[in-house]
């Protein structure tokens, strides 16, 4: 196990395959059935790129994910917490992840997860209405969005405007088919780039998530 080029992310090379891990802040617990590797006093949870777009983006070569120990994160579309749990490992006990999802059924699992991990704050809310959680969260260093909604870019920009600090970083997983099924992905993406850059946000990196997730693009932005 060695530290990868990305902060708080670890890796192992086995033959041609590269495996990623995060160091677990809560020993003796897997979150979604992932493999756990013990080394010395530490425990590492394998990060599955089929199940987590952030992991797929790293394996596809992003040089930096701009996420640091101690960061406050706003995570939109947390679902049952697969990726959230790795983000929680990365920011560590000094950091905090506000995890928002609109669906009560998946939120249930997130509540169970947050009861064990103190740095995950579950918020049942609609990311399309950021003013409804203004009293429940703080400003953040980092915004992560994966909501598969038609107006996902609008949601992203609204939340950044309200909650992301100046100079903070923001990631959005764009799913072409949820924005417009009739257009080709390339065309949808171009429209997304325009919309984001018009808002004053800078796009620093674009990653296709093939072969782990089809027709998905991960955008890394600076506010």
């Amino acid at each position: 196990m060695k530290q990868s080029s990305i902060f708080e992310v670890y890796e192992e090379q086995k033959g041609k395959r590269r495996f990623l891990y995060t160091k677990s802040i809560l020993k003796g617990n897997d979150v979604y059935g992932e493999r756990i590797v013990n080394e010395g006093n530490d425990e590492y949870r394998e990060w599955n790129p089929q199940k987590s777009k952030l992991c797929a983006a790293i394996l596809n070569g992003v040089p930096n994910i701009f996420l640091r120990k101690g960061d406050f994160v706003l995570y939109l579309g947390s679902s049952t917490g697969t990726t959230v749990s790795h983000v929680s490992d990365i920011v560590g006990t000094e950091g905090l992840v506000f995890a928002i999802d609109i669906a009560p059924i998946v939120m249930r699992d997130l509540v169970f997860l947050s009861e064990k991990r103190n740095n995950i704050v579950p918020v049942l809310a609609d990311a399309n209405m950021p003013e409804t959680y203004r009293e429940r969260i703080s400003l953040v260093d980092f915004l992560y969005q994966d909501v598969a909604q038609k107006n996902q870019v609008e949601i992203f920009l609204k939340n950044a405007r309200m909650y992301l600090k100046k100079g903070g970083y923001a990631l959005i997983a764009v799913k072409a088919r949820s924005i417009d099924v009739s257009k080709r992905p390339g065309e949808v993406y171009r429209q997304v780039f325009n919309e984001i850059e018009k808002s004053g946000m800078k796009i620093i990196d674009k990653r296709n998530l093939d072969p782990f997730q089809r027709d998905h693009l991960m955008l890394f932005c600076k506010y």
């Binding site: 905090l96 506000f98 704050v121 579950p122 918020v123 203004r134 969260i137 703080s138 400003l139 260093d141």
Partner: peptide, 22 residues
């Protein structure tokens, strides 16, 4: 909102939101 981006408040954010979400 930036004033509250502070570890001093993490515990309260966590416990109160947990109750509200439940």
């Amino acid at each position: 909102l930036g004033v509250f981006k502070d570890r001093a408040y993490s515990e309260k954010f966590h416990s109160i939101n947990l109750e509200l979400t439940k």
